[in-house]
């Protein structure tokens, strides 16, 4: 494109100055960006840890080892263990169908996968109340068989499944699309069966993307608040996840305790960010290696 424009060789300017800004403009722009990030990201993050330790380490330890806090942590872990593998499995299946085959209605399927991202978490919780609540579609049936879903753990799991559903698929689809299917086809031609091809060829190719999707899915599953808050019923020690426990403590003006539990979740968030950066770095390295080969 550039070659088609007749260059005026007479109008010489030093390259470096013509494609960047004067130093003072650079400094102003960098400062503005950093100030914004400091105000919106660094300050809140710092506040969480300072508020958590405001009343000393003893209050901190007491807050995170309180029976209600421990049961909230346990429930959150249970929800994660149940939802993340299911959504990872779905993500791999969906990405395989979408990227390896051409079929009608594919774009509709891709849009459907994005749906939970666009929907308010409150609505995500509401739909399960409409299905399984006492006046819901299956309300009478569940009551007769003495099964409780809403205001109980199954409801929390379902709502979390709903909101964390797109993460793995969203990471894998563009990745597998870029990789194509040539390697799988070669493996099959050489006599490997489908399962072996998937385990030996596809999985090693997508492992970083898969891990990244799982980490994002995990972070959201741990932290989901809106959807879970609709279906949980807020029963202490029974149906409170960590974010709901924080809400209760905060509303009871137990600020130090609320921030103590919040600090645990913030550490998880920071670990998530670090892992994400390591994975991105690994993926970039892999790409470079492939370019060399």
């Amino acid at each position: 494109m550039a070659g088609q424009i007749p260059l005026q060789l007479g109008a010489k300017k030093t390259k470096s100055q013509s494609v960047t800004e004067p130093p003072w403009v650079r400094r102003v722009l960098i400062s503005a960006a950093l100030l914004f990030l400091a105000l919106f990201l660094v300050l809140p993050l710092t506040a969480i840890f300072i508020k958590a330790f405001e009343q000393g380490i003893d209050v901190y330890t007491a807050s995170i080892t309180h029976p209600d806090a421990l049961s909230a942590i346990k429930l959150t872990l249970l929800v994660v263990v149940l939802t993340v593998p299911l959504n990872a499995l779905f993500g791999v299946a969906a990405a395989w169908a979408i990227t390896k085959f051409d079929f009608r209605g594919k774009s509709i399927l891709v849009t459907l996968i994005d749906l939970p991202f666009a929907i308010s978490p409150i609505i995500a919780g509401l739909v399960f109340v409409l299905l399984f609540g006492s006046t819901g579609l299956f309300g009478d049936f569940l009551f007769e068989h003495n099964i409780q879903i809403i205001f109980a753990v199954p409801g929390i799991v379902l709502a979390t499944l709903f909101v964390t559903f797109p993460f793995v698929a969203r990471e894998l689809i563009p990745l597998m699309q870029a990789q194509g299917s040539a390697e799988e086809e070669a493996s099959l031609t050489l006599g490997a069966n489908g399962w072996k091809t998937f385990m030996r060829v596809t999985l090693p190719n997508i492992k970083w993307g898969l891990l990244y999707g799982i980490i994002l899915c995990n972070a959201r599953a741990i932290g989901e608040f809106g959807a879970v808050s609709v279906v949980s019923g807020h029963i202490r020690g029974l149906t409170n996840t960590m974010p709901l426990h924080i809400e209760i403590l905060y509303n009871e003006y137990q600020f130090s305790a609320a921030f103590a539990v919040a600090s645990l979740m913030s550490i998880l968030a920071i670990v998530t960010l670090i892992l994400k950066n390591i994975i991105e770095w690994k993926a970039a390295q892999r790409e470079q290696q492939e370019d060399v080969v």
Binding site: F90, A93, A94, W96, A97, I98, K100, F101, D102, F103, R104, L109, L112, I113, L115, P116, I119, V127, F128, L130, L131, L158, L161, F162, F165, S181, E184, E185, L188, T189, N193, G194, T197, F198
Partner: peptide
């Protein structure tokens, strides 16, 4: 409906995907 491909698992992966989306997303919504 579908272009020919030598890769296996179309029915399984699409079937599971459609089933999962219908049950978890479409029915509730």
């Amino acid at each position: 409906l579908k272009k020919h491909s030598i890769l296996p698992g179309f029915g399984l992966s699409l079937g599971f995907t459609t089933f999962y989306i219908s049950l978890l997303i479409l029915l509730p919504l």
